[in-house]
Structures are given as structure tokens and as C-alpha cells.
């Protein structure tokens, strides 16, 4: 599984209240999507295109348990790569089916707008402009399988434990 896309850069400690503000917590998925990064980067949801790649700094996604990873997935981003990903946010990436990779050095290696090729086979990231290749942190098989399958909800549905989405 490999993606090539245009990159968007966000810094260190990007928190869940920026990704999905509290006021939108009970909104529908479609309404939540409209609010992504409204406080720190208004208008971005209209600029990001399907297949793009988000580049983050340290501790990306710190904060709340809210479905912020689902909202990022819903923007059409192919995946995200950050220096490090907050533990709770990482769980939400796995469980909402949003492909996420931790990769040291990623932030400096990219200028916003560079094309990135991200591999979820060998967990490398290539900058198409500079040709630099970075090695990301391995995603354990069981978590990768869940991420690729769209998260845990489809699994629980298949097992007859939860009902289908309305």
C-alpha cells in the first residue's frame, strides 16, 4: 500500500480541539468536516484534495478522545506522517481507519507542497523533490490490518456485535 500526494504541514502538539472543535462534537460527520482546523487554518478544508498527505510535528493529535482522526480521514487525505503521534490519537487512527505513520526527521525533510510517497509496506517516506528517503516506525501487523480495513467498526459489524451504520 503506497500513496503519492501533495503535502500539507502542521507543527508540534497539534491538538484535537484544533482538528475538531468542541462546538462540533455532536455535529454530523459532514458538518464536523467543515470545522477541521477552523481556528488555526481557516479555509484549509476547501484547499485539501483527495490523496493529499498531512505532515505533522511532535505529539500530533494531543488532547481529547473525540473522533478527530475520522474527520481528518473524511477530508480525503490519503494518510498522515508525523515526527510522533499522540498515543490516544494513534488509537483513534487505527480504530477509525486513518493511515498514520511516525517518522523521525519528516518535518524538516519537507517543504509544504512537496510531493511525498508514503509506503505502508516498508514504512518509508520519499520526498519526490529532494529524492530523500526516510525510514518510519514499523506499524505492528494487527494494527495495520485494522487501519487498512477501515477501523474496528467494520470488524465488529462482521462479527455480529454491532449494527450497521445508518
Amino acid at each position: 500500500m503506497e500513496f503519492t500526494g501533495k503535502t500539507w504541514k502542521f507543527g508540534d502538539n497539534i491538538n484535537t480541539d484544533l482538528i475538531l472543535p468542541g462546538r462540533a462534537q455532536l455535529f454530523t460527520e459532514a458538518e464536523q468536516l467543515r470545522c477541521v482546523f477552523e481556528a488555526n487554518r481557516p479555509g484549509w478544508v476547501d484547499e485539501v484534495a483527495k490523496g493529499d498527505v498531512l505532515i505533522g510535528g511532535y505529539n500530533f493529535g494531543m488532547g481529547s478522545s473525540r473522533p478527530a482522526a475520522r474527520s481528518l480521514r473524511n477530508t480525503g487525505l490519503a494518510c498522515m506522517v508525523a515526527e510522533s503521534i499522540n498515543g490516544l490519537f494513534y488509537r483513534n487512527c487505527v480504530n477509525w481507519g486513518f493511515l498514520a505513520l511516525e517518522c523521525e526527521g519528516i518535518f524538516k525533510a519537507f517543504k509544504e507542497g512537496d510531493q511525498a510517497t508514503v509506503s505502508f509496506v516498508d514504512f518509508t517516506v520519499k520526498n519526490r523533490r529532494t529524492e530523500e528517503i526516510l525510514q518510519g516506525r514499523l506499524v505492528p501487523d494487527v494494527l495495520l490490518t485494522t487501519m487498512k480495513a477501515g477501523g474496528v467498526l467494520p470488524l465488529l459489524e462482521t462479527e455480529g456485535l454491532i449494527g450497521s451504520a445508518k
Partner: peptide, 10 residues
């Protein structure tokens, strides 16, 4: 530990 909503369904 705080988890996400899908974790809770699981």
C-alpha cells in the same frame, strides 16, 4: 486510559 469511541465498542 482514555480511548476513542470505537475502542469502547470493542
Amino acid at each position: 486510559r482514555g480511548t476513542g469511541a470505537p475502542d469502547m465498542f470493542y
